[in-house]
Design a protein around this nucleic acid. Structure first.
Length: 205
DNA sequence: AGCACGATGCTCT
DNA sequence: GAGCATCGTGCTT
């Protein structure tokens, strides 16, 4: 039985966590079904200084979770339709998180596909719909496997397979934040199914 | 295959 | 009341 990534994993610089979450397994227990996806895209949001980070306006009811203990889920709602999943990072009291933007489904694929009406899961709103993640999951401890949502070690993705670039979807964020290379994604998406099969090997020591 | 736009509701000013 | 860490559709090349 693989254990969830420990709190120490999240209690580190957010960029390190964002990079190392690439290839990790996002596990969701939904109505007795186990859904698993390999994380293929992340973005870092770091502190009140970062004008793209929700914490730019300080501690509010919404951003409270980001100020808390690392390793918890920060789930919020946007654009009237979509839920976004983040993993809280860095020490308690410092607001930072990694947005999980895309997954490659590897277990419970039928349920995931049904939740998405057969469409893809590459996108932060899409993966939440695929995994049935909503405000109920806000604040869940991702280091506890007895919850309904956690993250565990998956596969090793080498640097040469990871693209680093500026975060996307930040319409009016001023520089220098707009151009910070704080986005990580698996380079060639056609390679991802191979990574997923590699994951099943990695699970069997 | 690329762009424009509307849906839709919560959060902060 | 404006703005949003988006998505899907529908229309244009």
């Amino acid at each position: 039985m693989v254990k969830p990534l420990p709190r120490d994993f999240y209690d580190r610089p957010t960029l390190t966590v964002a990079r190392e979450l690439i290839g990790a397994r996002l596990v969701r227990i939904l109505d007795a079904a186990k859904l698993v996806g390999i994380i293929t895209e992340t973005e870092a949001y770091i502190g009140e200084e970062d004008l793209a980070c929700h914490a730019k306006s300080g501690l509010t009811p919404r951003t409270q979770v980001m100020y808390g203990q690392p390793g918890h889920a920060y789930v919020y709602f946007t654009y009237g339709n979509h839920w976004m999943l983040n993993a809280v990072t860095e020490r308690e009291g410092f607001p930072a998180a990694v947005l999980i933007r895309a997954i490659q489904p590897i277990e419970g694929v039928e349920v995931i596909s049904k939740n998405r009406q057969g469409r893809d899961t590459f996108g932060p709103g899409k993966l939440c719909q695929a995994m049935g993640i909503t405000k109920t999951e806000n604040g869940v401890d991702l280091t506890e496997a007895n919850q309904s949502l956690w993250i565990e070690a998956g596969i090793f993705v080498p640097n040469k397979s990871v693209t680093i670039g500026p975060r996307v979807g930040l319409n009016k964020t001023p520089e220098p934040w707009l151009s910070k290379p704080w986005r990580f994604l698996v380079k060639d998406i056609s390679v991802t199914p191979a990574l997923a099969s590699g994951a099943s090997v990695a699970r069997r020591p």
